[in-house]
Nucleic acid binder design. Sequence first.
DNA 1: GCCTAACCGGAACTCACTATTCCGCTTCGG
DNA 2: CCGAAGCGGAATAGTGAGTTCCGGTTAGGC
Lengths: 226, 226
Amino acid sequence: MTRRSAPAAAPSLRPGSGIGRDEELRPLRRDAEVNLGRILSAARDVFAEHGYEAPMETIAARADVGVGTLYRRFPTKADLFGEVALAARRRVREIAHDVLDTVVRDEAVFEFVRRCIAVPSVWRATISAPPWGSTHGTWLTEFSPLLAEIVERSKDAGALRREVEITDIVVLLKAVRAIADLCDTPGSKPSLRFLELSLDGLRPGHEAPAQPPLSVGQLAKRLDRH
Amino acid sequence: MTRRSAPAAAPSLRPGSGIGRDEELRPLRRDAEVNLGRILSAARDVFAEHGYEAPMETIAARADVGVGTLYRRFPTKADLFGEVALAARRRVREIAHDVLDTVVRDEAVFEFVRRCIAVPSVWRATISAPPWGSTHGTWLTEFSPLLAEIVERSKDAGALRREVEITDIVVLLKAVRAIADLCDTPGSKPSLRFLELSLDGLRPGHEAPAQPPLSVGQLAKRLDRH
DNA sequence: GCCTAACCGGAACTCACTATTCCGCTTCGG
DNA sequence: CCGAAGCGGAATAGTGAGTTCCGGTTAGGC
């Protein structure tokens, strides 16, 4: 995609610089600050809606800003996406923790999945990924423990089939995302129906599926190969 | 995509000419006949694997033939795809009829879905579609009655939740396709596991989902908008 | 109010990717 | 053995998207 020859290396993601990058060397001029906010917000929405494929111009338009402005703030598209994805991951972690803290045991997984999906501007950026690097690999590794804990809770509460693995949950999220891309409109979201139907398939009362689950490593590898 | 200005009109699909186009005006030279077979087979596989996006060169390479040869036989990519899709639709109809004829009532839908998916080189071409025209619309309209009959059977046998509509089945097929794209390798197919899990969600014993189903018309419109 | 460093918009440039065409060469088959 | 039918694949041409560039604009310190 990008011309740069470095094949699998993610561009400078400067892990430290979150959205609130106020404490930069030189503070931004007021108008620039406003534009930066606009850009990040637009990028969040547009990436959420169209994934990494979305053209920079679309983001610029949504932010009501010229493309040049995007590039003054973020050297490359990947940098911009990285910023958005970082915020998204942060958000997912919050959701996971909140679910563990406040949701009754048996509803844990279901609630987690529902909440992830309820924040489209966030989960899309996390679940979908740019073509470079092992984004999914890192993402999966990062969230495996948390997700495993959530899954375990629901299993212990007898609300989730014991055969279900965390990779099944991730796959389900992916599937719902695909359906959302295909069928959802602002007004009606068949993907939510599909989600509920599929979640029901994860509840106890069915025979164990013949097909074995994927390991986290396998799944990561496969998701990243695109 | 195509340079031709006719915007939404499917190119000459000459409904009559199936794969066995032996009875043409002038019979093909023996070697050309062989190549034609190779091309159709390659197109079937490649479209199955990558959808309409697959470049003509890929198909040519798989058929071990030059692109020129493709174009001598099929004026445009859409024509080639049309041919493949036609065969695919034919195949799906066969499957549907066979299921209705030979499968026990309660397994009808499940078996139908499984069989559709088991013929990747076919179902991909049917489920995925080229950017022109209302392919899904026609497809859905064409198969609705048959699919409805299959669904009805399983419902009557008490093996399928009454709330499930035929659009739910189509959506499920789409989702499995997406997962297959993402995760399947020749050696292992997590999409099959996902399929089984999701199918279980369609069996009785769960509360009715809150989200309403899509009508066939709505679904067709949405799938065709890409 | 003035001046300049920061900013801005968005046209233009580049590059990658493909459908499709073209044409000199090869091969079937009478 | 000859010509028509085929063939391969380089060349053509259109498209789309990331990135660069630069003349014009504006915030904000003095």
